[in-house]
Design a protein around this nucleic acid. Structure first.
Length: 269
DNA sequence: AGGATAGCCTGCGGGC
DNA sequence: TGCCCGCAGGCTATCC
C-alpha cells in the first residue's frame, strides 16, 4: 500500500532508467485508467525530471508535458527488461529509448491512474492544487491552521490529503503512537507543540522508511520487485491485540476516520 | 461547509 | 481440497 515512502522509492529507483531517456509507442490496454482520454500519453517525451508531491508522482518531459501517476493501493510503475513477462493487470506500456527496458504501469485494483497535462503548471494548478503541503515539508503551523476548529479525529485529519499530503493509514498510526496522541483526539484540540511532535515524528518515521525501502504489506513491492523492510519496525500498525512495545498494554483497535486504527490507550492520550 | 458514509476493485487468508 | 466471505484502503461522489 504505497504511502509517501513507497512512492519516493519508486521515484528514486526509476531515475536512472528514465532521466534523459525517451518514451515511445505507448500501448494502452485500459483507457479508463488514463485521464483525460485520448491524450498525448507522453509519446516521444524525453524525461527531464521526476517529481513527487505526497503520494503522487509526476514525470516531466523536455517539452513541458507532464504525466501524474497515482499508485492507489496496488499500482506499480516499473522499468523492466522487454524480456520480462508483463505483470498481470498491466494497463499501459512504453518503450524506453535507448533500450532495452519497457516502462509499465500495472494496477490490479485500479484505485490508481494516470493523468496527462500539457505543462507542470497545469498539473500544479489543478490536480495538485487540492493537496496540502508534502508530509516531509509540512510545519506545525500548517497543521494547526488547517485543523483550527475541526471536530473530527486527528487521525482523520492526517489522512486528508488536502491537510497534509503523503500520509496513509500505516504512518498515521505510527506517528500518533510516537507522539503519544490518541487517534481519536479532536484535530482542533491539538496544540502547536503537539503538532510539532507529530510533524517531527512523521518526518523521522517517513525518512527512515524511505531508507528501508518502504513498507511491504500485502501488495507493495519496489520497482525492482524487492520488498521493503520498514514494516519490521512498525510499533502499532498490524499489531492489534499484541502488547504495546513501551508499556505492555494490549493494543486497541477500532475504526477511526473509516480506517482500521491501532493504538495504545495507556501511552496515547 | 465540514464531516460522515458508500462505493470502487481484486487478491488473499481464515473458516468450514 | 475448495469455496465463500470478510477484509485491506486511497480517493471521489454523495448525502446530511
Amino acid at each position: 500500500m504505497p504511502e509517501l515512502p513507497e512512492v519516493e522509492n519508486v521515484r528514486r529507483k526509476l531515475l536512472p532508467s528514465l532521466l534523459g531517456h525517451s518514451l515511445q509507442s505507448p500501448v494502452v490496454n485500459r483507457p479508463d485508467i488514463c485521464d483525460p482520454w485520448p491524450n498525448h500519453l507522453l509519446d516521444g517525451a524525453t524525461i527531464t525530471s521526476l517529481l513527487r508531491h505526497g503520494k503522487q508522482l509526476a514525470l516531466i518531459a523536455h517539452d513541458g508535458r507532464a504525466m501524474c501517476v497515482h499508485l492507489g493501493m496496488t499500482g506499480a510503475l516499473e522499468a523492466l527488461p522487454a524480456t520480462t513477462p508483463p505483470a498481470p493487470h498491466t494497463h499501459v506500456t512504453w518503450q524506453i529509448h535507448p533500450g532495452p527496458n519497457l516502462l509499465t504501469f500495472s494496477d490490479p485494483r485500479r484505485f490508481g491512474g494516470l493523468w496527462f497535462f500539457d505543462s507542470l503548471d497545469a498539473l500544479r494548478s489543478t490536480r495538485w492544487n487540492t493537496l496540502g503541503p508534502d508530509a516531509l515539508l509540512a510545519t506545525p503551523e500548517d497543521l494547526l491552521s488547517a485543523c483550527r476548529g475541526s471536530t473530527r479525529a486527528v487521525k482523520a485529519a492526517l489522512l486528508d490529503q488536502s491537510v497534509i499530503a503523503g500520509v496513509g493509514n500505516i504512518y498515521a498510526d505510527e506517528a500518533l503512537f510516537a507522539s503519544d496522541v490518541s487517534p481519536k483526539r479532536k484535530a482542533g484540540r491539538v496544540d502547536l507543540s503537539t503538532w510539532g511532535r507529530i510533524v517531527d515524528n512523521l518526518r523521522a518515521i517517513l525518512g527512515s522508511s524511505i531508507l528501508a525501502g518502504g513498507s511491504t504489506i500485502r501488495d507493495y513491492r519496489g520497482p525492482d520487485g524487492q520488498p521493503g523492510t520498514a514494516q519490521r519496525t512498525h510499533q502499532v500498525y498490524g499489531r492489534a491485540g499484541q502488547p504495546c512495545n513501551r508499556c505492555q498494554t494490549k493494543l486497541s483497535t477500532a475504526q477511526v476516520g473509516q480506517r482500521t486504527t491501532v493504538w495504545c490507550r495507556t501511552c496515547q492520550r
